[in-house]
Amino acid sequence: MTVPRPHLSFWERLYVPTLLNGFKVTFRHFWRTAVLRRPVTLSYPEEKWVVPEGYRGAPYLVRDQDGRTKCVACQLCEFICPPKAITVHPPGPEVDPATGNVEKRPRDFEIDMLRCIFCGYCQEVCPEEAIFLMKDYALVGQRREDMVYHLDKLLALGGVHLDPVQKWKHKAREAARQETFPVPVPPPQETHAAS
């Protein structure tokens, strides 16, 4: 295949217009950066980037306004996570004294930030709106173990997320009602099988 070459005039073949154009472009950038001091880069540790809404940073766990861990240890996020960054340790028999035995909660929750690819699937799949990708993008640790975030750290970093529904309160009331309501036990029926 032959590539058609544009016909250059004598002036263009002298290379002068190219030189001038090149100088114009480079000088424009030089002027903007060196004289007007408007580089496109940031001097990172001093200047920080304004993280836009909807950015997918590190996933953290949240509490609701009553301070209850929203996660119910359903492990959906653990199963969906593509690089298997999440390990949920489902609860043992102990009950949260603050809320009573209405929902499970994780005994421990690990996210290996070295594995996490910030894909956001965990946030999308969570039925309880308990895990969110936040704005942190520079995670630092000195050892590998430092980069595995556990439940306490995740909750501390995640903060509070207002929950308009607070399903667990409703459930607690229901549970309480179930415990106090005298459930009628049907009297033993006589059988007429023999007759």
Partner: peptide
């Protein structure tokens, strides 16, 4: 430094 300025960096 000069090439950085031409490329919009510091």
């Amino acid at each position: 430094r000069l090439c950085a300025a031409i490329q919009d960096r510091l």
